[in-house]
Amino acid sequence: MDKLLYKKVMSRGGAFKQAPILKADVVDEEKHIILVKFCSFGTVDSDGDMLMKGCISKSIQERGPASATNRKIQFLWQHETKNPIGRILSIEEKDDGGYATVQLSDFDAVPDARRAWVQMHEGVLNQFSIGYRYVWDKCDYDPDLDCLIVKEIILHEISVVTFGANEHTEYIGDMKALDDMERYVKALRETAPDEYEKVHSRILSMFKAEPAPAPLTSRSSVFEKLGQIKN
């Protein structure tokens, strides 16, 4: 439960998940239609999550290509919401993961669609990433596997990306999440004092039991900063 709470706070509700392009087949060379596998099921990823088959079924139903909504799941360039580069024709779940058939946009009108097509063929671009939100009541922490079992996500977009993450982006993201986590714990103190006591005591006990690793920056670690929050 402690690790589930920690991930919940640190993620700020949303997340990006990177994965290598395990499958990228050309369906129609002339129309620039590709088939991609954008996530895997049943394996623990580098974020400590295990996406389960069925986790995107509700998103497909509610915002997939066949849905009535105008806020459909998008195919983007580098997570840029202002830069969609193709139209998702179909999304489906198979036993091993999520698959999407995508028609890239007109190359003259959308240069990054051409760029993605060329660089995927060259092998320069070899990763996809999904943007989504956790559905927390459909997530469970498995202590034996030391991972979060994710039974449902709200899938917003699929992106072709250069890197899964870079050091600078991770650093800024961590600092923002740290501030959010501090505000969350302080809010617990005001709105749910019993829960606050549990969280605060647990953080302090963890900090005392295990010496904090040497900081990578001059900023205090998460547990050091939270340990300074007084009753």
Score class of each variant (00 low, 15 high):
208 K>I: 05
53 K>H: 01
192 A>Q: 09
11 S>Q: 04
59 S>L: 03
184 Y>I: 05
81 T>D: 11
223 F>H: 04
152 E>G: 10
8 K>R: 14
140 D>N: 08
224 E>L: 06
168 H>I: 14
198 K>Y: 07
173 G>N: 06
63 R>V: 07
148 L>Y: 08
7 K>Y: 11
197 E>W: 09
176 K>T: 14
101 T>K: 09
23 K>F: 13
193 P>C: 11
199 V>R: 10
214 A>W: 10
218 S>L: 10
143 P>F: 04
194 D>Q: 13
149 I>D: 13
155 L>C: 08
162 T>I: 05
122 E>T: 04
44 V>T: 15
110 V>G: 13
187 A>G: 05
185 V>I: 12
14 G>H: 11
8 K>P: 09
50 M>P: 03
10 M>C: 10
29 E>C: 12
102 V>G: 01
230 K>F: 02
57 S>Y: 01
77 W>A: 00
55 C>P: 03
193 P>M: 15
174 D>Y: 08
34 I>L: 10
130 I>R: 06
122 E>Y: 01
140 D>C: 13
24 A>G: 04
88 I>E: 02
185 V>H: 10
92 E>N: 13
137 D>H: 14
172 I>N: 14
36 V>H: 00
183 R>D: 06
44 V>M: 11
124 V>E: 09
66 A>F: 04
39 C>R: 04
100 A>G: 06
188 L>G: 02
91 I>Q: 07
106 D>K: 09
177 A>D: 05
165 A>P: 01
20 P>H: 02
216 L>E: 09
2 D>G: 08
140 D>Y: 14
76 L>S: 01
68 A>L: 14
128 F>N: 02
146 D>W: 01
192 A>D: 12
78 Q>H: 07
52 M>E: 10
4 L>R: 06
2 D>N: 14
96 D>K: 04
145 L>N: 05
173 G>V: 07
35 L>T: 11
137 D>S: 13
16 F>D: 12
199 V>K: 14
207 F>R: 08
103 Q>G: 08
88 I>F: 12
195 E>G: 13
97 G>N: 15
155 L>F: 04
81 T>K: 06
202 R>L: 12
189 R>I: 08
159 S>R: 01
44 V>A: 05
101 T>V: 08
142 D>Q: 07
143 P>D: 10
82 K>R: 08
180 D>P: 07
16 F>I: 14
33 I>R: 12
211 P>L: 04
94 K>R: 09
53 K>P: 03
225 K>S: 09
193 P>Y: 11
64 G>E: 04
39 C>A: 15
124 V>L: 04
202 R>V: 12
108 D>P: 03
122 E>R: 06
182 E>K: 00
173 G>C: 10
80 E>T: 05
73 I>E: 03
110 V>Q: 06
50 M>C: 11
53 K>D: 03
70 N>H: 15
21 I>G: 01
192 A>V: 08
191 T>K: 12
45 D>C: 01
44 V>S: 06
164 G>I: 02
57 S>C: 01
24 A>C: 07
107 F>C: 08
211 P>G: 03
135 V>W: 01
166 N>K: 04
47 D>I: 15
150 V>E: 14
54 G>M: 04
144 D>N: 09
184 Y>C: 14
198 K>S: 11
63 R>K: 15
75 F>H: 01
90 S>Q: 15
120 M>G: 00
204 L>W: 03
56 I>K: 00
176 K>W: 06
189 R>A: 14
205 S>Y: 10
91 I>D: 00
13 G>N: 03
120 M>S: 02
